[in-house]
């Protein structure tokens, strides 16, 4: 298993980047990561505790670093470097061989490790369904509730224009 070198995998990134996400499992892993990255380490850990987890080991112990965040000129043009963010990452291997990766904003290495563990479980035939049902789905629901609440509060500040007809004042 080859892990990314510690810095600057930019060149490799741009060449492979064009590969389309045709793989179903890949889309599923990505969807799971999108939920887990928004959860707290404690929430993920609490849900994993209810599962009988298989044997696993750290393939990459958690480490923190930076990712340069990019925007686009005018919002939709050529990319530019906006500024960096702290990112943590880890990799975990199940005894059955599946390798999971965890990447997340921030410096919480334990969270990256838990995401990596979930990613490995998502790929496993024995645990894929149960981790989706008992970990990912409830966290996704919590995330959606938070987002809906925020969207409803935002919506209340939307301006409803009305036109006054002259003379009615």
């Amino acid at each position: 298993m080859k892990l990314s070198s510690i810095i600057d995998n930019l060149n490799a990134a741009s060449s492979v980047n064009q590969v389309t996400l045709h793989n179903n499992q890949q889309a599923q892993r990505k969807a799971a990561m999108a939920v887990l990255a928004h959860a707290e380490a404690g929430e993920i850990a609490a849900r994993l505790r209810n599962l009988a987890l298989p044997e696993h080991q750290d393939l990459r112990t958690p480490e923190s670093g930076l990712v340069m965040l990019r925007g686009r000129i005018g919002g939709d043009g050529a990319p530019f470097n906006l500024g960096e963010a702290t990112v943590s990452r880890a990799a975990v291997r199940l005894a059955s061989g599946e390798v999971g990766f965890g990447y997340t904003l921030g410096r919480d290495g334990e969270k990256a490790r838990l995401i990596a563990l979930c990613d490995a479980l998502v790929q496993s035939g024995d645990f894929g369904a149960v981790v989706e049902r008992d970990v990912i789905a409830p966290l996704r629901e919590q995330l959606m509730i938070r987002r809906e609440q925020a969207a409803a509060e935002t919506a209340a500040t939307k301006v409803d224009f009305y036109t006054m007809v002259r003379g009615e004042g």
Binding site: M1, V16, V19, V87, F101
Partner: peptide, 25 residues
């Protein structure tokens, strides 16, 4: 906005979470 990072060991653009931004046109 959501942030994604292409991690070569993973093989696809990994979601990292979201950040808050202000944009002015």
């Amino acid at each position: 906005v959501e942030v994604e990072f292409f991690a070569e060991d993973v093989g696809f653009a990994v979601p990292l979470g979201s950040i808050e931004l202000t944009e002015c046109q």
